[in-house]
């Protein structure tokens, strides 16, 4: 399931939501969240920062990071791409 999730992310460079991924993996959004967090703990995914580098001196930086109001974004790391490459799932 973890490999499959990485492969889906690697095949398409779009935004995916847990419900969409759940449909593709024939599982629940809750399970996708769990898989996402597991992959992140193992270093295959990383949570994208909520503020861009241009926000370093922004007065709203603290507010931007407020929990619960922002969408969490996850993306594949170099380690994830290497794993896909080794398995033949990445170019």
């Amino acid at each position: 399931m973890l490999f499959q999730l990485l492969e889906i992310l690697n095949r398409s460079d779009r935004l995916h939501t847990p419900p969409q991924l759940a449909e593709a993996l024939h599982t629940t959004p809750q399970m996708v969240q769990q898989l996402t967090e597991h992959l992140a703990r193992q270093g295959y995914l990383v949570e994208a920062p909520q503020c861009s580098d241009g926000c370093a001196d922004c007065a709203l930086r603290a507010m931007c990071s407020a929990e619960g109001h922002k969408a969490k974004l996850w993306t594949v790391t170099e380690k994830g791409l290497r794993a896909l490459h080794r398995s033949g799932g990445a170019p």
Binding site: L9, H16, P18, G68, A71, K72, W74, T75
Partner: peptide, 11 residues
Amino acid sequence: VAFIMELPLYH
């Protein structure tokens, strides 16, 4: 790159 987007709850 691809992203997984966890949409926040409505407030």
